[in-house]
Computed example of a mutant assay.
Amino acid sequence: MSTPVTVHRVHHDGAEDVVVATAGRHEGSVYTGTVDGAVLRVRPDGSVEQVGDTGGRPLGLEIDPEGRLLVCDAHRGLLRMDPDTGAVERLLAEVDGTAMVFCNNAAIGSDGTIWFSDSSRHYGIERWKDDFVQDTRSGRLLRLTPDGTVETVIDGLAFANGVALAADESFVVVAETRARTLVRRWLTGDRAGTRDLLAGDLPGYPDNIARGSDGLVWVSIASPVDRVVERLGSAPMWARRAVTRIPERLQPKPAHTCRVQAYDDHGRLVHDLDLDTPDFHMVTGVREHEGRVWLGSLHEPAVAVVDL
């Protein structure tokens, strides 16, 4: 028996990530950002309104303790948006004097520390396939503390993407899309400062990740494993670069799929939703809240929801 998927059209392309308001006057609403720079609110009744515009390309979204939206903008860096007025504040655009190329996803600690990913030092979102195929391994996980200090926590990642914290903030996890892993960095305890894998050899390429209200780390699987891309990984760099120069219509394309998974803090797979829907594909954002799983997509002009 297939799991029904409800699709909410937002009439803007590329509703890449989703976050649920769990308190305040917009409780139950879902926020998303689209390719034209818009940040949208999908109300519980399904109606859609524009909250504001980042002037760039909003990707990962979080809600801070004050109810403001933290926006990872691929063009403009880390932003903060007032969900009532749409006012935008730029928090961070540069690291060590160099502009970020591909700010992607984030998680917010209880002390206000922002853990976030910069997917590539070489290619922005318009050329994400170049970084993916060439496997530049120039992604990184960073943190921004409340006093404004910026630190690179993990460097050399194969397309750093989604970010999530443990429920007790004992570790932070970053999705390594090209390597199909969830890399964990321990923050407290005997293992503090070390890294390992929360999960490896994923069945596809992970995008955004988020901790749900169920305590699990939910992972969007944007595309299943592509054997051509995997074979290119062992090819010389000149060959990988040559592939990215061929016409778009001849390049490897993500397969039509709609899949998300959820892992506990021991790396055990708890949920694997491989959804059969012709109306939604390439899931790049996922957010579980009280038994409902919301989905975003880099390409769809819509968000979707599934009841567990």
Rank of each mutant, 00 (worst) to 15 (best):
K129P: 04
D131V: 05
F132H: 08
F132Q: 01
V133P: 00
V133F: 12
V133R: 07
D135C: 10
S138A: 11
S138E: 02
S138W: 00
S138H: 02
G139M: 05
R140S: 14
R140Y: 00
R140M: 12
L141A: 01
L141I: 02
L142C: 13
L142P: 03
L142A: 11
R143Q: 12
L144E: 02
T145A: 14
P146I: 00
P146N: 10
P146S: 04
P146R: 12
G148C: 02
G148S: 11
T149R: 15
T149V: 15
V150T: 14
E151W: 01
V153G: 13
V153I: 14
I154A: 09
D155L: 00
G156L: 01
F159R: 06
F159C: 10
A160K: 00
V163N: 06
A164T: 02
A166S: 14
D168W: 08
E169K: 05
E169N: 07
E169T: 05
S170D: 15
F171M: 08
F171Y: 13
V172W: 03
V172F: 03
V173A: 04
V174E: 02
A175Y: 07
A175K: 01
E176H: 01
T177F: 01
T177M: 11
R178F: 09
R178Q: 09
R178N: 12
R178W: 06
A179P: 03
A179I: 11
R180A: 11
R180W: 05
R180K: 13
L182E: 07
V183E: 03
V183Q: 11
R184D: 04
R184F: 01
R184K: 13
R185M: 09
R185L: 10
R185N: 00
W186S: 14
L187G: 03
L187M: 12
L187I: 09
D190I: 11
D190G: 15
R191M: 11
R191A: 13
R191N: 13
A192L: 08
G193H: 06
G193D: 14
T194M: 12
T194Q: 15
R195I: 14
R195V: 15
D196P: 09
A199L: 10
D201H: 11
L202H: 05
G204F: 01
P206M: 10
D207I: 03
D207K: 03
N208V: 07
N208H: 07
A210F: 05
A210S: 13
R211C: 03
G212M: 02
G212N: 01
S213G: 09
D214G: 08
G215W: 06
V217D: 00
W218M: 05
V219I: 12
I221A: 11
I221K: 10
A222E: 08
A222N: 13
V225S: 08
V225K: 05
R227V: 15
V228G: 12
V228W: 14
E230C: 12
E230R: 13
E230I: 10
R231Y: 13
